[in-house]
Structures are given as structure tokens and as C-alpha cells.
Design a protein around this nucleic acid. Structure first.
Lengths: 341, 341
DNA sequence: AAGCGTACTGCAATCGCTTCCGCAACTGCG
DNA sequence: CGCAGTTGCGGAAGCGATTGCAGTACGCTT
């Protein structure tokens, strides 16, 4: 079932069928109708591989994500898809699941599909970056260090976000804080952890960081369990993201601790659930919709066809105070210094 | 940068390069090494379009989903992807966003990509089903009515699930229940709503169904707000899924109502958050991982290469009782009949 | 030394589509 | 009526891979 069949059925040449299918204007309307009828009757569907092979360019954007089931990334992907569609582009998704091998495979796959642009969220390897530099297509990255003349990078001030949270908690009287990190030491999560340690040290607060066995709700629960068992009784727990924060809160309540009555908890990302869970989360807002817009803008050429100029975009954190934080309780049962600084 | 360049650089023919790249055994190892070096040096990446055009078959499964940001579907997709990878297949995702036009486009796109199999979750149109019947590939659907000799259907007993919830609530003394539906009248959600109305009617309970303006957390919140404003004071609220249930609970608490103290709430699907939110949700479990496994099993041929036989799989609901349901309160401030049956 | 099988390798056809180029028919103008 | 300028359409050359088939070289048997 190919172009030629349709052409034969409609009594025209393949070139004409192709022109009709691509909306080329120079076709008599009677011919056009005849072709369309033949297409309809044969239920013809063009072979997209042949099409892009012959056509050369494509209007497809490749997107690589780790963890689509992390709501934060799902939201971003959704935004990308929406904006891409508006720009007349399709989207091709590849999951890397935080695995370097898979990441490499994903990038190769998308490059092999001749995508018009590539947006990559996971942490990059130098080797892959090199390949991307060679590729003659615009690339959007979240790796602020990466430079290349076809690279647009989007950077978020993670450290400042953490600082805003610690400042808030300190102002509320918290002097004994814990941080629940991510299982993978990626650049953004590592920056958050470090900033937590540094800022609390500057304040002279007592602090502790623990690393959960996995990301997400159950990772948070496990980390909180371990934290409580350790005997370190914080009045506030900062979490690497909202996703684990929800799990942490759950475990605290299971253990009979009130949030924020006994312990304050904060998240990061401001995913939708942060507003809807009980108690709702104090967190740092990252503009996911805006990120999606930026990715597409950095990938599709403008009206004149010139590819987007590479640039570095900085996104600023925004503090969202909700119910999960409150005035420091006078210890959760364990004696503590309680000294200011 | 094509096969020929590599062939020239390695001093061999294109056929040999192709054989090396595809792991064909009949190549002298010295030649193989020379080719691989050329590939490396030129950073050659095969054009996948040309490859599938020439090769014919592909090892790619097409998956169509509405709403990837609905955690229920995100989980299913994740499971599909994992199982497909295990079977040596890739996955191609297309989003339909509950739009018939987009659904049609998505199916056409995947068919055009010559996928080896197609899994479609959104509600189908008869016209699209016809096209799918013509396609010479296995198809997995969630439309229990659809039949075709290349169709595998997966069916879930939504009605029974609702019955289990209503039974539970009735046993707990609830006689005045509300149902919060989905904005789109899809087959599964409609079945749930109808079963709610019928079962409560059979019990002689007072019942009311409302439809939120949108799906998800904020849809649930909006619906709950409307419900409370209406003056109908239920002692239990059943929700079309966990996603809106969380929004409903949030709004109830905003209005000062305790869950389950004043009002019991149930969800459906048993998405991960159902276990972690506060209070955790009483809900109906749908085996998402199993569904992913079934989809892949229904799509990839077995070891001998014979395509999977079409079949109808029935999935049974499973009641999960958690914190969001309790003994009926003696009215939420409004007089009510309170009659048993 | 001739014959023959085996192991490699290259040529060229092919996949289905787009698009350049040329041809025919038709239009309008002098 | 003749000629240039459109307009509409078909032929055929790619796009970059895979693969059947033929050819070469080499080793072994007799």
C-alpha cells in the first residue's frame, strides 16, 4: 500500500499524489479530489520513514528525560509537548531512567531519527556532550557548565532556593534541622544538599543530612524512618523535593508527630500535589510551564528559519509558604542546645 | 555522513559496513575492527529512517495515552516501557489529550512509523478501530467492546469496584452519599457513575452525582466546593479516581470538615499517592504493573515469531481500606432521613 | 595440479517518498 | 493565428540503509 498504488488508482503520477498530500498548491482541484478519494478508499497511510528519508528535514523535537513518573518531569514534558504542538512540531520522548547507558542510547536514537532539535534533562557525560556539539542541531540542556555554539542552557539557582528555606526556618526559631537528600548525586540535588550544610553551618545550627534509598514517596518515608530512629530529633526537615517530602510527612504522622506542630517540613519544586496534600507544603517554586516554553523556544527556528541563538537562561527561585512549616517546637522529646548564633 | 563515507574511510563496501553494524557474523575480524574504527572516528550514526525503510520490520511498540500527567497513566507507561525493554523492544509514545482529532493523528503517526504493535488507552472511535483492524499488527485496547482478530482487549470490572466501595460505606452506616465524576464521559468513568447511582438506589440511600470542571486535584477541589455549597450534606463522597479524591479531601479540610470524622472519602485506581496522602485513601486497586506486562505480552511475538493470539483479559478489582473512610457521622449539620432499607 | 567448498566481500536492486526538471495544454495578447 | 507565459502533471533521480546474489581468494582433498 504505497504512493504508487494510490497514484494508479487515481490515474495520476506519484508526484501528483505526493503534492496533494503535502498541500502543494499547483494541483487542479478536480485532480486533488480524485487523489483524496483514492487515498480514502485505500486507507492509505504514508510511510513516515520514507517521507523523512526523502524529505530531509523533520519537524520533530527529541526530548530525553529521566523518570517520567516523577511529577515534576511529567509536568515539564507536558508543557514542552503543548508548546511544541503550537509551533507545529511533534515531540519524541526517550526515557533514560538515570542510567548512563540508556542515556547514551536515547540520545543516539533521537539523533538517528533526525530530530530537528534535542532537549536533554538528565545530567550529561562529556562524551555525549561532544557528540551533541558535532550534531548540527540546536540543543537545550540543564547542565549549566556545558558550552557549545548550538547549546542553550537553562539554569536554576538551587542554592538560593535552599537558602530561602533555611532563612525562613531559622526566622521561625528552628536551630536543629535535617536534610533528606536524593539517592543519586546529581548536580542540582548535590548543590541543594551542600547549600543546606553551608547555610546551617553559617547560622551555627545543628544539622544532619541523610540519603534515602530511592526517590519519591517511599524513599522519603524510609529516610524519615531512619532519621527518627537515629535519635537526632530535628525541629525541621528540608527535603530535596516535594515528592519525597510527602513521604516524609506521611512517616512523621505515622510516628505520631504533628506537622508542623512538632516538626516543620519543606519540599522543593512546587509540584501540583504540594498545594493539595495535608498539610500543604512550604516549598520553592520552579516554573515548569516556563521551562517547557523555553525548551521549545530554544529548539525551533523562528519564522525566517534561522535557528535560535544559543543563550543561558537563569531562573530564579520563589518561596511558597504553606502549612507544613511553623514556629519551632521546644524539642521533640530530646534535649537540645537551642542556642541562637 | 552516511554508510558510504564510512565504507570509503575503511576501504570496504557499504554492504560490509552494514553487516558489521548489524552484527552479521560473516565478516573477518580484522575487517570488522577496521570498520568499527572508521565508525568511531567519523562519529557515524546510522539514519534510522533509512534503516527501517530498507529493513522493513521494526522493534518498536507504539503507545497512545491521554494524559500522561495523570499518575495512573504515567505508571502504566512506565511499566510498559520497562517490560518492552526487557523484551528487546523500544517504545514510542503519543499523547492524545482526550481529543479525538489528536487521537486520530497519534494513531496515524504511529502506524506511519511502522510500529510492530500498538497499545491504545483512550476511548476509541469506530472509524479508528476499522483502520486498526486493517493494520497488520497486533493491537491492545482498553475498549472491551472492540473485536478484531488482531485485537487483545484488557477489561477491568469498574462496576464491581464501585459496588465494593458502596457496600463498605453502607456497612459503615452511610446513607447519604455523593459521587464526584469525571469531566469527560468516557466508558469506564461513566460505568462507575452509573453503578454508583444504581447501587445506592438499591440500598435506598440518598445520593447525588456532580461533575467537576476538570480532572485532577483542582477538579476535585472545585467539585467538592460546589457540592458543599449545594447544601446536600453527604456523610461519604466517592470519587471517580484517587487524583480528584485528593483534591476533594483538601477542600473538605479547608472548609473545616474532618476526614473521615465528618465525611468519608474514597478514590479509585490506588495510585501511589493514595497510600501517602493524609489521610491515606480507601480505594480500589487497579494493577498498573500487571497491565503494562499484559500490554507488552499482547504486542510482541513469542520466540518462534508467531504474533500473540488475541484474547480478552479481565482484571478484578481489589478493595484497599485505609484511613479516609470511617463510621458515618450523625449528619454534617443538616437534617437527614437516616433511614436504613 | 585440478577441483571444489568455504569464507568474505562488493555490486546493485530495493524500500516509499520528495522534488527537480521537462513537457503538454491552455491562456491571453498582439 | 502565432507566440510567450502560466499552470498542471509525470518521469526519474535521489535520500541512506539492507540484502540477495555473484565473485574472489584461499585451503583442502584427491
Amino acid at each position: 500500500m504505497n504512493l504508487e498504488d494510490v497514484a494508479k488508482k487515481a490515474g495520476v503520477g506519484t508526484a501528483t499524489v505526493s503534492r496533494v498530500l503535502n498541500g502543494h498548491p499547483a494541483v487542479k482541484s478536480s485532480t486533488r479530489a480524485r487523489v483524496l478519494r483514492a487515498v480514502e478508499e485505500l486507507k492509505y497511510k504514508p510511510n513516515l520513514h520514507a517521507r523523512s528519508l526523502a524529505g530531509g528535514r523533520s519537524r520533530v523535537l527529541g526530548i530525553v528525560m529521566a523518570n517520567l513518573y516523577n511529577p515534576f518531569f511529567a509536568d515539564i514534558y507536558h508543557s514542552i509537548e503543548t508548546h511544541a504542538r503550537q509551533a507545529g512540531y511533534e515531540t519524541l520522548l526517550a526515557n533514560s531512567s538515570h542510567d548512563v547507558k540508556l542515556l547514551k542510547a536515547a540520545v543516539h536514537r533521537l539523533l538517528g531519527q533526525q530530530v530537528a532539535g534535542l532537549g536533554v534533562f538528565p545530567e550529561m557525560e562529556p562524551a555525549i556532550l561532544d557528540e551533541l556539539r558535532e550534531a548540527q542541531i540546536p540543543v537545550v540542556l540543564f547542565d549549566p557548565g556545558a558550552t557549545g555554539d548550538n547549546f542553550t542552557t537553562i539554569d536554576f539557582d538551587h542554592r538560593k532556593g535552599i537558602r530561602m528555606l533555611v532563612d525562613l526556618l531559622h526566622a521561625m526559631g528552628h536551630r536543629r534541622m535535617a536534610y533528606i537528600s536524593a539517592p543519586l548525586l546529581l548536580q542540582p540535588t548535590e548543590a541543594r544538599r551542600q547549600e543546606f550544610m553551608e547555610t546551617t553551618a553559617r547560622y551555627g545550627s545543628v544539622s544532619l543530612a541523610v540519603t534515602p534509598p530511592e526517590d519519591g514517596f517511599s524513599g522519603g518515608r524510609a529516610a524519615a524512618r531512619e532519621l527518627l530512629r537515629s535519635g537526632f530529633a530535628p525541629t525541621a526537615i528540608l527535603c530535596v523535593n516535594d515528592w519525597v517530602a510527602v513521604g516524609v510527612i506521611r512517616e512523621l504522622r505515622n510516628q505520631g508527630l504533628a506537622v508542623p506542630g512538632d516538626v516543620s517540613v519543606t519540599g522543593f519544586d512546587n509540584i501540583t500535589i504540594a498545594e493539595f496534600c495535608c498539610p500543604s507544603l512550604t516549598t520553592i517554586h520552579i516554573p515548569r510551564t516556563e521551562i517547557g516554553r523555553l525548551v521549545v523556544a530554544g529548539l525551533v527556528p523562528d519564522a525566517t528559519g534561522t535557528p535560535p541563538a544559543p543563550r543561558h537562561v537563569f531562573l530564579d527561585p520563589e518561596l511558597v509558604v504553606r502549612e507544613s512549616t511553623g514556629i519551632a517546637a521546644s524539642s521533640a522529646g530530646i534535649q537540645q542546645p537551642g542556642s541562637g548564633h
